[in-house]
Design a protein around this nucleic acid. Structure first.
Lengths: 222, 222
DNA sequence: GCGCAAGTGATTTTCGAAAATCTTGTAATT
DNA sequence: AATTACAAGATTTTCGAAAATCACTTGCGC
């Protein structure tokens, strides 16, 4: 999210907690008890509470009055809601990028794609590289829309991407992904975007929808 | 925003602060000092800090590390960004509502419109009724999209509406509004929406755009 | 006179504990 | 046996103060 408020302790704990949730270390619906987390991260309950409050900003945690925080729940309907919004907003952000982006934007897209492609190859070989791929994948999608001049739109797409990541994490490296040529989808996105082809928006929509369909087909929701 | 976390003290202070900002009592860019606010609302600095953190969630306040909170700044580009997103999201939410809404939704729209119409008439007569009109106006727009089944979309439109309200407040009861027949615009919206006319979406877009244009034409930004 | 460093005051951030609230388990009553 | 009332424990929420950081001024050296 480019927040990186590493300046303050609450910001650091926030970043750690966010990573833990996105990595699936903290399961959806799991209660986030202040005392336990404070001990775990060697910080006071106050900073943990502030960190959790910021997680709630981005819908990764929820606060129930007098009952504390929990990791946000997942549901089929919420995944569909997120996907619909992503298709709409990230598509529009891509349109903006293709219209306003200069050659440096193109370079950033090509660069991010290269890193993602390389990360994809080392995925099956070496263990524990799934996080590396996730980061590269995230960076690629960020690069695609990085030339959008609507700051709020970018913030929303980034926030929604985090929400979607939770579900992708949930379904793991599902077998269904074998039936897709994801690298080809990314390459197509890269080529259409850098050549300012309007159909890039539709390609992005298909890309997002397919991932959602894959997650849904695992039957882990509801 | 239908938050109303009046159960906890931090929630109460949050609601008050939110109202103060939206009413223009706290000006954009104004620093929000903890000690001063704590004394003003007779609460500890901790609860004020938590309340401010929640305001930051909805982009009504911003936190700079080690420099505390300030009321969010306004700018021409931000208003344009908000408007573009509102047209997109609130339009789509209205489309959803017209598709999924039942007769109770229609009734809610008609009801909210009636209240708004009545509030409009008493606007010029009695003083201090501008808040009443603002509330009715807000409620009308909420009712329009209330049958949308995408919860996240509704949350986003509500949040963006708050952001837009800040600008409407800024421009006051500008003279430019005299050149518009706002009641007619609302009536048209009500009739098109309840008759499930797809052109309601475009009418809503025009309605939102006109308000933005009016605010911009005051020349108070930048 | 001008720039720069140290010190002072104000403000944020963090901490640990008290107060309030909720949850769970036990006992008493119908 | 089921249900309600009560009590103990755990957890959140709130508080006030200590620690850390920042903005500003004063004083020193050039």
């Amino acid at each position: 999210m480019s927040d990186s408020k590493t300046a303050t302790r609450a910001g650091q704990v926030h970043d750690i907690l966010r990573a833990d949730i996105l990595r699936g270390d903290l399961a959806p619906g799991e209660p986030l008890r202040l005392a336990a987390l404070a001990a775990k991260y060697d910080a006071s309950m106050s900073v943990v509470r502030e960190a959790l409050g910021r997680l709630a900003e981005h819908n990764l945690a929820v606060l129930t009055p007098n009952q504390g925080f929990r990791v946000v729940e997942v549901s089929r309907s919420d995944l569909l809601a997120i996907t619909e919004l992503r298709v709409m907003l990230e598509g529009e952000a891509l349109r903006h990028s293709m219209e306003h982006g200069d050659v440096h934007w193109e370079a950033a897209v090509v660069s991010a794609h290269h890193v993602l492609e390389r990360a994809t190859f080392t995925l099956d070989d070496e263990p524990g590289t799934t996080q590396e791929w996730s980061d590269a994948h995230h960076a690629f999608h960020v690069a695609l829309v990085s030339a959008c001049d609507n700051a709020r739109m970018l913030a929303l797409t980034n926030s929604l991407r985090d929400g979607a990541e939770l579900y992708r994490q949930l379904s793991g490296s599902s077998d269904h992904f074998r039936e897709r040529d994801i690298p080809a989808e990314h390459r197509e996105l890269m080529e259409l975007a850098t050549s300012r082809d309007p159909s890039a928006v539709e390609a992005l929509a298909r890309h997002l929808q397919r991932t959602t369909d894959d997650v849904l087909s695992t039957g882990l929701l509801e």
